[in-house]
Amino acid sequence: MQELNARRQLEADLSELTRMLMRLSKMAEEALARSVWALKNQDVETARNVLDKDDALDQLTGRIDVECMNFVARFQPLGEDLRTVTSIMHMAVDLERIGDYGGNIARAAIELAGKELMKPLIDIPRMTATLSEMLEKAMSSLERREPALAREVFPLDDLVDDLEKQIMRELLLLMMERPQRIEQATLLLNVARTLERAGDHITNVAERVLYSLTGKVIRATDFRRPKER
């Protein structure tokens, strides 16, 4: 029962697909981090740069999609191979969306540039740092085939949700004090909401990683605190 040669090509191709996905993840992570940095530092150039890179992100997503289909057509995978390739297809969609969110935030950064910020941005960058950590955990879990790492993503999404709520409360108070702030505050609210959504997509990614590694459908809610009623 020695390892068959037929698996060598399959494993090489599957590793390449995984590497492509990790590259996409890195690009999505950068889009978020750089757009938020541009927002905080009012740096139009960095924001434009994020928008410029959006095409590359879309192209890579398209390539992953095609290569996954080719993989299925050539190897007709089953078991863990099948779970992994279908998961990669799903994860690529989630990651592309996160990249798009980076673009949305970059547009907000361009709009805000040159206008005085109503407050220094603290929690929005914290959200972004947490999202980066989540993505890195999910991808390391896939690469190192360690399910425990992906499970660590779920409680971090609770933290992201908390930060968003905190930002909303704060901005609401500031708006009530001075209605002139409404325009900018609405924009920042949107950014916070966008980041919260990105957290949901990363949670999906972590669920997919766990499914591909364990074969069990794992719901993030099992690892998060119960929802408040």
């Binding site: 029962m1 020695q2 390892e3 068959l4 037929a6 698996r7 399959l10 995978p77 089953l78 078991g79 863990e80 191979d81 099948l82 779970r83 364990t214 074969g215 069990k216």
Partner: peptide, 19 residues
């Protein structure tokens, strides 16, 4: 069996690790 078998030997067989 073909998506998420319980036994490692089944997994190895359906993914072509032996046989």
């Amino acid at each position: 069996i073909f998506t998420a078998p319980d036994d490692k030997r089944t997994e190895d067989y359906i993914t072509g690790r032996f046989g």
